[in-house]
């Protein structure tokens, strides 16, 4: 059975992989934003997990890690808001949510 650290890290890795998969392969821009959020979630979980210490069977927590996660979550929220507003803007300009249609930066 995995210890608490391994458990949490595995969970965060799964979240990260799912998030990356979503960013890589989804066409709908909102789905990509969701993927980004998942990515952020996974990373936050990993950071929080690094603050977990078990000393003599008692679980202690490093306050620094948790405060970082708190800030990160706030930033994540801001990113989500901005990303969604960009998505709405894109819909207004291109009339579609399909990311493959946004090709003006190509060669």
């Amino acid at each position: 059975m995995m210890g608490p650290h391994e458990l949490y890290f595995t969970a965060s890795l799964i979240l990260i992989i799912i998030g990356i998969y979503a960013v890589m392969s989804k066409r709908h821009i909102v789905k990509i934003v969701i993927g980004l959020e998942l990515l952020t979630l996974g990373v936050n979980l990993a950071i929080a997990t690094t603050g977990l210490r078990i000393i003599d069977g008692v679980s202690h927590v490093d306050a620094l890690a948790q405060s970082m996660v708190a800030i990160s979550m706030a930033i994540g929220a801001a990113i989500a808001a901005l990303a969604l507003s960009l998505a709405i803007n894109i819909y207004r300009h291109y009339g579609t949510f399909d990311v493959r249609k946004l090709r003006r930066l190509r060669w």
């Binding site: 990356i20 190509r106 060669w107």
Partner: peptide, 17 residues
């Protein structure tokens, strides 16, 4: 060489990965 710039977000992320 410049065909790498496809303009598709997903491809760029693949590259990063």
């Amino acid at each position: 060489v410049r065909r790498i710039h496809t303009g598709v977000l997903g491809h760029y992320v693949i590259g990063i990965m």
